[in-house]
Nucleic acid binder design. Structure first.
Lengths: 215, 215
DNA sequence: CCGATGTTTCGGCGCGCAGCGAAGCATTTC
DNA sequence: GAAATGCTTCGCTGCGCGCCGAAACATCGG
């Protein structure tokens, strides 16, 4: 018998985080911010359907555990998802939550739109995200140039561009700094536009012409 | 105002799963099985430090949510992690749980051993896992042959071999069917051996000679 | 300054759920 | 068949924590 602390007592580092995410109200808060938005406490409270005071408590916990970051501006406090790892963990959980039952739900709203294209933190996910990843993997930096991306955006290390398992597709899309630049780029050029009140992204007419050509 | 259910009410699919994982006892159970082992209910109860009846209830929930799978054999019921996605989600959560504080803990046991090499479900993780992934990414199937792997193990689709973000290294290691075969291969050849009561893997003298040469 | 707005702190209520022990069911052993 | 072992079901108890409203604290506008 070893004296060293048993693995059973060291493991549940993930338990704290999971417990934080596991509360339905906090989960709704995270969901509201998962699109990459920066929202003040009041709006988050409303989105989650709870009192301001209740929300405040939850937000404090989410900050404590490093899931959210906050920036004070005047009398507002703007909350956002702390980093890409958090978004990645939430997508990974969503993937597990995907029960085989109800496979046809992807045909209906609001899943249909989310499946086609959505933001995941600051990058692109969904069918479109997967296709972008495929194209990038096939042609590398040449593809980035063809898409009109600044060459400063080219990935340096592994953490600048890495694959992230996509919840709806069960395949990978691109994550990391490069992926953020790419999404910004698509939005600036109006190839994609954000749907209101949702993480869904829509392909604009320009996007249909320009972006699809690249895939 | 659209009538369709708002995104805030559709999102928390991940909440259910997180809530299940978030309970400390259930987390210990998952931790005990994360090494890839197949354990009977009684042993899991003991590892988690709870009554058999308490454990039984938890195990039922873990089954219900698809986190564990079970196989009856005589009067025993053997539980195991249901699939790689679950392991992936747990590693992703662990990554988030990694607080910047206490960065020196990796120097001490039991973290030191886990950081070097460990099982993650059925594949190899930790420093060694990352290095294996690098080598495979560099040389592709040629590396697999050099490692003495049967060519039947070569990956077919994307899901056979995909990168998984490593909790301790913050870089990727290899996951998927290929990774499972690879780990089996290493264990069969006695290049690696399982530490008792832990997910940690140890490099054997043969492993030091043969495996390190390949990296 | 003073009232309005946004946010956090505090106190108290109530539900949900993890925990145990005892009893029930299944399977193996002698 | 009876006793032993492994696991699950049931009923109960207690604590933790999410919830709200009221009040305190901050910041902005006039």
């Amino acid at each position: 018998m070893s004296v060293m602390s048993s693995p059973s007592s060291v493991e549940p580092r993930f338990a704290r985080i999971a417990a934080i995410i596991g509360d339905p109200t906090r989960a709704r808060m995270l969901g509201a911010l998962l699109g990459g938005a920066c929202l003040p406490a009041g709006e988050i409270a409303q989105a989650a359907g709870v009192n301001a005071s209740t929300a405040s408590g939850h937000l404090a916990k989410l900050i404590d555990e490093g899931l959210l970051a906050v920036e004070a501006q005047g009398r507002h406090r703007y909350y956002r998802v702390a980093n890409g790892d958090v978004a990645h963990a939430l997508e990974a959980l969503s993937l597990v939550a995907e029960r085989p039952a109800g496979a046809d739900k992807w045909q209906r709203e609001p899943y249909r739109s989310l499946k086609f294209a959505r933001t995941c933190y600051r990058h692109l996910a969904g069918e479109l995200g997967v296709r972008v990843y495929e194209a990038y993997r096939r042609d590398g930096r040449a593809w980035l140039e063809r898409a009109g991306l600044d060459r400063a955006a080219a990935p340096q290390g592994e953490r600048d561009a890495y694959p992230c398992l996509d919840w709806s597709e069960r395949r990978h899309h691109l994550a990391g700094r490069l992926a953020s630049s790419l999404l910004d780029h698509f939005l600036e050029r109006r190839w994609l536009s954000r749907a209101p009140q949702s993480r869904a992204l829509r392909l604009t007419p320009q996007g249909r012409r320009s972006l699809l050509e690249l895939l």
